[in-house]
Amino acid sequence: MAIFKKKEADTYNELDAKKNASNVSDGMLRFNRVTPFSNALYSALFIFIAAICVLPVLFVIIISFTSEQSIGVYGYSFFPKELSVASYKYVWNMRDLVGRSFLNSIGITVFGTCLGVILTATMGYTLSRRNYKFRGFYTWFIFIPMLFRGGTLASYVVNTQIMHLKDTYWALILPICCSTFNIIIMRTFFTTTVPDEMIESGKIDGANQLRIFVQLVLPICLPAIATIALFLTFAYWNEWFHASIYISSTRSDLFPLQYVLVSIEQKIQWLINNAGNVSADAQDVPSETMRMAIVVIAVVPIMFSYPFFQKYYISGLTVGAVKG
């Protein structure tokens, strides 16, 4: 009982704190609002857009519960004639593979995102310092790879024969942890939101660049960090290409979830492209309902990770106000 009360008290305190925080800008917000009519219009617009965007996910979920026969006769439908959980049963039979790859995906995503954020932020910060001597050189240095690449074969040779990444988790983490695009976004954020005076004052206090970066710059650039972290999270979660090249089929213990899905797609493509060569002993294609079931398993968890990042974008003007 006592514990319950304490918890309750905590919640109240939290609520109060939030209220106070928003009070800072409340007065300002009141003047700063769009008219109620515009608000209604905008809200309606967003509800409409959101509906269009939710539809396909709904569709995928419905198909995953549709019976295969029903698809065969009536095609895909939002209102299936016959429901079935057969596809989930089939996925359940594959639980060793799907479960393992699910854990792999989470591990790779978390680790890769952390690594990627560090690499991106440090370079982005360096490039944003106007008095950095090598700034011009480094801009070109990271710009060129955005356009010119060695190609799959050369990358494969370097990654397998020099770095020996084949059949390791590193092959799924390292090649995509950094990108010119993310660094440039980061640089732009830094140049627009970090005032030079702050760096200068840091230096006057005797801090070195690493300390300035970690203690002064990063805290006010949380939205930027969250943006890049979000991009990386999605990139890692959706990644399958490197798995298809660097992970042998017999090392299914290293598969990420997306690759399990894609390997099924590839099989279907292969069967179409080689219709002439497929003799009776070739395996049949898996059903569509089963593929959709895997899509559901692959999409739903990442959906729930989104609100975690989201709080950094939609907190309105409060962050700015506090900073000001």
Binding site: E68, Q69, I71, G72, I268, S279, V285, E288
Partner: peptide, 20 residues
Amino acid sequence: ESMPRSIAGVVQSGQGWFGA
């Protein structure tokens, strides 16, 4: 794209052998 044998109609075709 895909037409699994389990749902394709009463007539299907394929390369094989008597026994397949």
